[in-house]
Design a protein around this nucleic acid. Structure first.
Lengths: 227, 227
DNA sequence: TATAAGTGTCATATAATTGTCACAATTGTA
DNA sequence: TACAATTGTGACAATTATATGACACTTATA
């Protein structure tokens, strides 16, 4: 899934350039040319990073930065400041107020991308670990939530457990009985075919990603990214 | 002053590595290679965080975790579990028993540090009395007041504490029991179902923002800005 | 002390989830 | 193609879990 980057920059030329470069590298971009427009983008699905021009209409960058850092949720979004060459004080003030890094204008695309990657890796290094991911499908045991393209999936507890089991045991066939043992628990008297029904419910919840749960005729079911 | 981190891990190699990395980052470390040694460190000055190996001699990690969570003082120390890759059940059991996060072995120093920082920030925010904000919802521990769009919310002390806990621990499911332990305090004999009632009262107080307090069927409740 | 608030529990109302069936659809094979 | 085996589905009743209103009892507060 592409990361979303919010560009807050009033100069059209620079904004377009940033947008172009970022999209070239597979990021999605959101654009704002003033304070209000920036705020308007700060809702779900939240951007993964904010590129913030220091000086822009409707409030300086640092003002927005301060607002961001006061919100429990928004404060977690990394911010990279764009500053003019030589404005050392600005850089320091930005970092002191919670910016994660800065890029000095003018800058090369290569430099920009390197900064962004570093920051994203640093700020959010292990969401790659605590959350189970398969393409756009994520399952986070901590929040106990499954999402597809960041929108929550509706499913019952059993389907959630089933999906959890599948995601931790992918690319392998499990018989109905094995699934019952692993997901329902042993010593549970339930019909084999009941698994079918829950498989169906899980597929339904996965909607257009239902191909991840595959039928292996005569053997059982398999969770796989390969068709 | 440097934060003190207690490492409970029996493998010397890993313990040394952890200790080295942590000290590189300016933390003080305490080490324990078994259950007894760990307990021996649990007195004043208390460690600020415990890094707990899931499997270690003299009692499994979860045992120590349970003991910790029964003590009024010790239960406030955040615990990060170390688990082997793929042991999803362990992670879930750890979280259910009050671990604040987990790190999967093998892990990179960078990853480890990121986790620790996140947990420490959440559990012990530098500005403990700062106003918590989520969208239009604000909670100011100092004035002991919660407001929505700047108009004060009417709620009882318990609901306030509950909301405070939720706002400092967003995007995570808590069982009724965990909420009782964290909001009511341990050693308090109260029915699980009582939580439901206070959840309802809190929702009522939040009026049109009651969606922030979400029911996670079969698991508990979650405070989240995401639908 | 009188009065108002706040708490914890119940009983009851609602709502969501579950396991099974019966029957449809699909697949493999003779 | 016809048949047998296997899997997909919609419906449904029973079960469970959660929401809610009421109430007696405590705890603050004036």
């Amino acid at each position: 899934m592409a990361s979303k980057i919010l560009i807050v920059e009033d100069e059209v030329a620079i904004r377009d350039m940033l947008s172009f470069v970022l999209e070239q590298h597979g990021y999605e971009t959101l654009e704002a040319d003033n304070y209000q427009a920036a705020l308007a983008h700060l809702h779900e699905p939240y951007p993964d990073l904010i590129l913030l021009d220091w000086m822009f209409p409707g409030g300086s960058g640092i003002q927005l930065l301060k607002v961001l850092k006061q919100d429990e949720i928004l404060r977690q979004i990394p911010v990279v400041m764009l500053t003019a060459r030589g404005e050392e004080e600005d850089k320091v003030r930005g970092l002191e107020n919670g910016a994660d890094d800065y890029v000095t204008k003018p800058f090369s695309p290569k430099e920009l991308m390197a900064r962004l990657k570093t920051v994203m890796r640093r700020v959010n290094p292990t969401s790659l670990d605590d959350t189970l991911k398969v393409g756009k499908l994520k399952l986070d045991p901590i929040s106990h939530r499954a999402t597809l393209s960041n929108s929550p999936l509706e499913m019952g507890p059993t389907e959630f457990k089933l999906l959890h089991f599948f995601m931790t045991h992918p690319e392998r066939v499990y018989s109905r009985e094995q699934l019952l043992n692993n997901v329902w628990g042993t010593n549970v008297y339930v019909e084999d075919r009941t698994v079918d029904v829950h498989i169906r419910r899980l597929r339904k919840a996965l909607s257009d990603h239902d191909h991840l749960v595959q039928t292996v005729r005569g053997a059982g079911y398999r969770f796989s990214t390969r068709s």
